[in-house]
């Protein structure tokens, strides 16, 4: 534990603000968020709708550029990177899992997992791709297309794809939102065990206290500001904290 805290943080948010101009007026989605995510940590981000959770995730992943403030991922200031350099960093250091529609419908499970390496111009090592699929329990479904897989299986293929490049950070947006409770729990246990065994850093946006209870700590967001922090909370404690926020 002490070595983990001494290592430089995997992700740094430094006064990140994001506002959108629209015809109806200015919307401040984030109003200055500062936080450092330690390497090997699993953090859940919670908050009411419109609190800025998704904007925070997108800024942290370089999918959206902050209006002000800095974002560092694996030591790189995302604001200084070109679109191409950002794409390379995303390809090499980040993985993504979202609620649904994670997979390219035209490709088999195997090809979906092999895609990031192929896009990087590398020949994906067959055994590594197969191993990633085996680890998520899909060794026999490699040749199936997304349409032939259940929702939980699709999520597991997405996790295998997120992990196969050995990224430092994985971003997850409501990864269990479209799954039933049992399947959702299996997916979360998979994420948890990967964090524990491989020292991965995971940032997960969720509104489900049970999902959040798998994380090391929970950040609470309201009106674009960090308003609370809970370490090692149970689902009940997290739900209580959320209720407090929404009051």
């Amino acid at each position: 534990m002490s070595t983990a805290t001494l290592a430089p943080p995997a992700i740094v948010l430094d006064g990140v603000a994001r506002s959108y101009g629209s015809r109806a007026g200015r919307v401040d989605a984030l109003r200055g968020v500062t936080h450092a995510f330690a390497p090997g940590s699993f953090t859940a981000i919670m908050g009411p709708s419109g609190s800025g959770k998704s904007t925070l995730l997108q800024c942290a992943a370089g999918l959206d550029r902050p209006t002000s403030g800095r974002v560092l991922v694996a030591g790189h200031d995302l604001g200084l990177l070109s679109e191409a350099a950002l794409t390379r960093l995303r390809r090499d250091a980040m993985g993504f899992v979202f609620q649904a529609y994670n997979l390219l419908p035209a490709l088999t499970a195997y090809d979906n997992v092999a895609l990031p390496a192929r896009l990087a111009g590398r020949r994906p090592p067959r055994d590594e791709v197969a191993a990633a699929l085996t680890r998520v329990g899909l060794d026999t479904q490699q040749r199936r297309r997304p349409a032939e897989l259940s929702g939980g299986q699709q999520q597991r293929v997405a996790i295998a794809r997120a992990l196969v490049t050995r990224p430092q950070v994985v971003y997850a947006d409501e990864p269990t939102g479209a799954l039933d409770r049992t399947t959702g729990r299996q997916v979360l246990e998979l994420v948890r065990s990967t964090v524990d065994t491989e020292g991965l850093t995971v940032v997960m946006v969720t509104h489900d206290p049970v999902a959040a209870s798998y994380a090391d700590s929970v950040l609470f967001l309201a009106d674009g500001l960090l308003v609370g922090h809970l370490a090692r909370g149970t689902a009940t404690q997290i739900a209580a904290a959320m209720n407090e926020l929404e009051r």
């Binding site: 191409a84 995303r90 993504f96 390219l104 895609l115 990031p116 896009l119």
Partner: peptide, 16 residues
């Protein structure tokens, strides 16, 4: 659009 966005997300450059 969504599929193409996904492709970009998993590491495809605009050129690709």
């Amino acid at each position: 659009r969504r599929e193409l966005g996904l492709l970009r997300l998993v590491g495809a450059t605009p050129r690709q």
